[in-house]
Nucleic acid binder design. Structure first.
Lengths: 214, 214, 214, 214
DNA sequence: GATGAATGAGCCTTCATTCAT
DNA sequence: GATGAATGAAGGCTCATTCAT
């Protein structure tokens, strides 16, 4: 097998992966995991069942792949924008913006994220180990940031992991509200609102007062 | 048909309803909606499939009925404890206590409530009109209370319905955390914590400061 | 549940078992294991797929059940007719008769027995542990008998288990021939022939000579 | 098309045929007909599915071809070693040797031959007309030999075709036993054993006695 | 000619729902 | 009314075969 051919094959597989993941996101978003049919995913991707199964092992693997893919991407973005920032609050605000922008740009994944029983805030009925790992990583990123803010006396004294969950839940409510309204236009307003509520959630009264004065 | 016979029949149906709803709560809590089997519900209720279908039209109706039943009960309790209280914040704190006590006393329903993709905070994949109505009623109860507090200058200025959702989400995170820890012992601590976070969520800085002084 | 009801249910299950096993025997005989369709078995039994699966766990279990059922029955018969006989050769001759009569009376099982890659002589690609156990038991029954004849100086000196296989193979050839000819009429001739060849296979020249004289 | 080109093409096809038949033998021996995958055959042959289908029409044709190929080869060898011999018994003994040496040298084909439900002794589920023809030819070769021996008064009086089947069955049991033991070392012992049993199967008591004396 | 990606018919199995007893 | 046996539609997945490159 020539390296060229291998590359072509790899490229094609990658193309299919993308095609399928998008189609699957759509189908899972519309129907939920159980009601989604593999045949519908294949049709939505414009390919045959056989091809679909050539790329993904099965339904669960496909579902998992969506979360890996999107979760990893989201995590990377969130990390890359928060790490450079020294101020924990500033980092958090930047994190929310990234989080919201990412999800609003991917409405199908957003629907899955919110409604498929795997909302990050609960970590409830997560279906695979990979999903649990992903969930845990995302939570830790936020919890660590919170810990820093708490140690700097900026944030309210509370279990950082619990606070991380509360933050996520908060954003999810705002996103769910946004989705329900079908209000694509005011992304910036949504972000502002989310940041306001985030600040109120984490900051001590003193921090709040200081912010007010500026 | 004599009225007496009718009454007997009604009583029997009522008994079955209760039996089935409890069994269904257990099964749905363990497996989720899709994986739950009607046969398992019937067995858990100690009745036959035929009888189950004599009382409930189908799986979806059964699922819906759980939410109606528990939702109505919860709503009534929450109403009855909050209505007599003049102070909106006090009413809210009392409401959370009731909410949490109610759910912790019904762990099966709690699991469904949190993890079955129909958490009240999102109103997401609600499966029937009735569920949406219920959801809306509960939300309004809280939103109205919030509005009163806002008009009294005690609460933060924000869309009351959104705030209601944020409150519910907050409690759900705390309850999910509670469930995950299997921490049955410290109900009172959970309520305290929920009330603290609730206060921080809704109160203006001035209100907070005043509370601090007392 | 009343004992009566249980009995009725058991009786019905038993009836279905029989019905299904007969139908399955037919289908497996016609098509072989892999080509046989569960739907065809159900149809042949005059029941629905659901009912079929209510009685048997799956295709393999059904196939196994046929072998258990028939194998056990055949083994019991063969044991019961050979055990009372002191003379090993006489016992063997009686055993063949039983074996052949049993299989000729069950032509579908005979076809499976001969052609489904699990002919007792080879013990080749046996699909389940149960089948292997059954095969081993049948073989031992014959091998033990052979050993007795050998120790009595009546039979040719050779590994008894190998001789058992040779005997089975011999009968199977005769049965296959019989099946191919569709010659239902001359069962007794078939048995005679099988006994003649059996004698020639196992007996020492001396034994043969003695028999000749009688 | 030049004759040369045609020759080249033919040579290539022949090469592929050989390659594929060997690979297929391996795969069918390992998995049996139904479980064998065409893809696995192609991979084992180091070619593509398309090429495989360019040489053989389908799975069944491939399976058939193995039997034709090997069967023809075996037949030729058996013929060539038996024809020059005048003594029918001697010819038979030579034939068995050839038969066993041939199969032991081709363990994959041996496995198929024994276990794939198409053992020559039964002529059972032969899948194509060609297979039946082949089977018949092999059987006739032996039957004719037997007939000669019978007419010479050397062999037991019995239907020659049936005797041919019994012989084949006998060898197959010995070969199956040999395969199961994984006993590659003692080929000569296996042949000796087979010849002994063959003699006992076909010879009249007088013939046996005469042999004994020598 | 060779490749192997793509196809899709087909089969095992499950479970919500019905209905004869 | 109660039962639970019976139904059969539906869906995940495989693999023989085809065909565009």
């Amino acid at each position: 097998m020539s390296p060229k051919k291998t590359n072509v094959r790899e490229a094609r597989r990658e193309m299919y992966r993308t095609l399928i993941l998008e189609a699957a996101e759509k189908i899972f978003a519309e129907s939920g995991f159980d009601a989604a049919k593999m045949q519908d995913v294949a049709s939505a991707a414009g390919i045959s069942l056989g091809t679909l199964y050539g790329i993904f092992e099965g339904k669960l693997e496909l579902f998992t792949a969506i979360h890996e893919e999107r979760g990893r991407e989201l995590l990377e973005r969130a990390s890359s924008v928060t790490i450079p920032l020294d101020d924990p609050l500033e980092a958090m605000l930047m994190g929310v913006r990234t989080y919201i922008e990412f999800l609003v740009a991917r409405p199908n994944y957003l629907r899955i994220h919110l409604f498929e029983g795997d909302a990050w805030a609960f970590g409830g009925r997560l279906r695979t180990e990979e999903q649990r790992r992903q969930f845990s990583l995302g939570l830790q990123l936020i919890a660590d940031l919170y810990r820093r803010g708490m140690e700097a006396g900026l944030f309210f004294e509370e279990d950082p992991e619990l606070m991380a969950r509360l933050m996520i839940a908060q954003h999810q409510v705002l996103l769910a509200d946004f989705v329900e309204r079908g209000d694509d236009a005011k992304l910036e307003a949504l972000i502002q609102r989310a940041q306001t509520h985030l600040t109120r959630l984490v900051a001590t009264p003193e921090t709040l007062a200081r912010l007010e004065r500026n």
